[in-house]
Simulated assay, not measured.
Amino acid sequence: MLELRPCCECCGTDLPPASPAARICSFECTFCATCAEGVLRGRCPNCAGELVRRPVRPADRLAKFPASTERKVKPQGCVAA
């Protein structure tokens, strides 16, 4: 099950569970659309994997299976892989 991490790892922008701006790789590294499409050019800086739109968990499932609250932000920001 996806963690639905709460923020962009590059810039710290909040990404609520229903955010259409969240992008993830196959390891669930999480970025905002601005960072993913800009500086990262669609590639995860951690694994070089493709960044795709994160699916939205339905509200009734979110109540039973809540999103993560653990924030992971790179203090130095991100650079392309």
Rank of each mutant, 00 (worst) to 15 (best):
M1N: 03
E3D: 09
L4T: 06
L4R: 07
L4N: 03
L4Q: 07
L4Y: 09
R5K: 14
P6N: 03
P6Q: 02
P6T: 06
P6D: 02
C8S: 07
C8T: 05
C8A: 14
E9C: 13
G12H: 03
T13G: 02
D14K: 11
D14M: 07
L15T: 04
L15W: 00
L15K: 03
P16M: 00
P16L: 05
P16F: 01
P17E: 04
P17R: 02
A18G: 08
A18R: 00
S19D: 05
S19A: 07
P20E: 12
P20Y: 04
A21C: 08
A22L: 05
R23D: 03
R23Q: 14
C25F: 02
S26P: 05
S26A: 15
S26M: 10
F27E: 15
F27P: 03
E28H: 07
E28L: 13
E28S: 13
C29F: 06
C29M: 08
C29S: 08
T30D: 03
T30S: 06
F31W: 08
F31P: 03
A33Q: 14
A33E: 12
A33R: 11
T34M: 05
C35I: 05
C35A: 04
C35W: 01
C35V: 06
A36W: 01
A36H: 02
A36Y: 00
V39Q: 09
V39W: 00
V39R: 12
V39P: 08
L40I: 11
L40H: 04
R41L: 11
R41M: 10
G42C: 13
G42T: 11
G42Q: 08
R43T: 09
R43F: 08
C44T: 04
C44L: 07
C44M: 04
C44F: 03
C44H: 01
P45K: 08
P45A: 15
P45Y: 05
N46M: 13
N46C: 12
N46K: 14
C47Q: 13
C47N: 10
G49I: 09
G49Y: 04
E50P: 01
E50F: 06
E50C: 13
L51I: 14
L51D: 03
L51H: 07
V52N: 04
R53V: 11
R54H: 06
P55N: 09
P55Q: 11
V56L: 01
V56N: 00
V56I: 14
P58K: 15
A59S: 12
A59F: 03
R61V: 11
K64Y: 04
K64A: 13
P66N: 10
P66D: 10
P66S: 10
S68I: 01
S68C: 08
T69F: 05
E70H: 10
E70V: 15
R71P: 02
R71I: 09
V73M: 05
V73S: 02
P75G: 13
P75F: 06
P75D: 08
Q76S: 10
G77A: 09
G77D: 11
G77M: 09
C78Q: 02
C78A: 06
C78T: 05
V79S: 13
A80D: 07
A80Y: 07
A80H: 13
A80M: 11
A81Y: 12
